[in-house]
């Protein structure tokens, strides 16, 4: 029953779009408009409604586009979630030394803009004494610079997307361009994002970032192994954020930040697997989440190892 509903809805929408396409073709095909105004792209369906074949076509089109842009072979996958997986993340604040290796590993893996700079991870430095009982977010300094870290008397708290179970950002989005996947990752369809930035206002963790200009990624640094909902290069005018390296983690790999952390403070895995490190730390360690009072239910747990 529901299925038929769904089919009817999408067919009628598709017909409408086809008709509209002709009209729009006439309107936007003006001389002097953007170099690659791709109609197919404009009328692409919502990611969640694409059939297998349509998705395949979309991915191929994107690969061609990126190959042209960056002059090397690209893969854009749309690997789905694994059955029986709910991801969780742990960060041991008694180990983190504030070296920022994770920040730059993330930039490289996830094709964040170098200029202007976008960083998904911000490492906040606190006075150890001030955070004995309570972490006041606003007191954290992301700009610290020392010869060596850890600096005497400091505590470090890296913050990125908390992958909330009750994501305020998703609720705020007027176009359903962002949602939570079955494995718990909150993703963005950059092709449906209209850049209104309501999600950024809604996020209590400052985890979302906007491309105010065309992102700048040197061709030789771009990572060509991408996922539709993850690290494929973004365009000017869309919001982006950490996706727990969806292009890696859906293939069973650890995130780039876990791999990069020299002290082993970062933990990632399947919360439904009783033998995973994330389950172990939830069961055996003292954990806390950021801004618990907001009831956003982060799946990102800070702990004392």
């Amino acid at each position: 029953m529901q299925d038929t509903d769904h089919k009817e809805r999408t067919t009628s929408r598709r017909q409408f779009l086809k008709a509209a396409g002709t009209v729009a073709g006439a309107t936007v095909g003006l001389p002097g408009t953007s170099k690659a105004f791709d109609l197919e792209e404009l009328f692409q369906q919502h990611f969640r409604e694409l059939s297998q074949e349509d998705l395949e076509r979309v991915l191929q089109r994107m690969e061609r586009k990126y190959e042209e842009e960056y002059g090397k072979p690209f893969s854009v996958e749309a690997t789905g979630p694994l059955d029986g997986v709910m991801f969780g993340y742990g960060l041991d604040i008694s180990r983190c030394i504030g070296c920022r290796r994770c920040v730059y590993a993330c930039v490289d893996e996830n094709n964040q803009s170098r200029d202007p700079q976008i960083h998904y991870i911000r490492v906040l430095e606190f006075e150890r004494e001030e955070v004995q009982r309570w972490i006041d977010f606003e007191k954290g300094d992301p700009f610290y610079d020392h010869e060596e870290v850890p600096a005497e008397g400091k505590l470090y708290l890296p913050v990125a997307c908390q992958q909330c179970e009750e994501p305020e950002c998703v609720r705020a989005c007027p176009t359903t361009a962002t949602w939570q996947e079955p494995d718990g990752i909150v993703v963005i369809d950059y092709d449906w994002c209209i850049g209104c930035r309501y999600c950024m206002a809604a996020c209590p963790y400052g985890a979302r970032h906007f491309n105010w200009t065309e992102p700048g990624i040197p061709e030789d640094e771009v990572n060509p192994k991408t996922h539709y909902l993850g690290n494929r290069p973004r365009a000017h005018g869309v919001v982006e954020k950490c996706t727990w390296c969806i292009q890696r983690t859906r293939e069973g790999r650890y995130t780039a930040c876990v791999e990069a952390c020299p002290v082993g403070a970062r933990k990632f895995g399947n919360m439904l697997d009783p033998k995973s490190e994330i389950r172990y730390l939830i069961e055996h360690k003292r954990t806390f989440v950021l801004k618990a009072e907001l009831d956003t239910k982060p799946k990102f747990f800070y702990f004392y190892g």
Binding site: G98, C99, P116, Q117, R122, F137, P142, D145, V149, T213
Partner: peptide, 30 residues
């Protein structure tokens, strides 16, 4: 101990007007 990687660029040090906004935004969110 390790030498840390460079800190993020604060808004005030980015000169392109649009980029400044981007960085301010990023500063505001933490």
């Amino acid at each position: 101990p390790l030498a840390p990687k460079p800190p993020p660029i604060p808004a005030s040090q980015i000169h392109s007007p649009t980029a400044t906004r981007s960085a301010e935004m990023n500063d505001a969110g933490h």
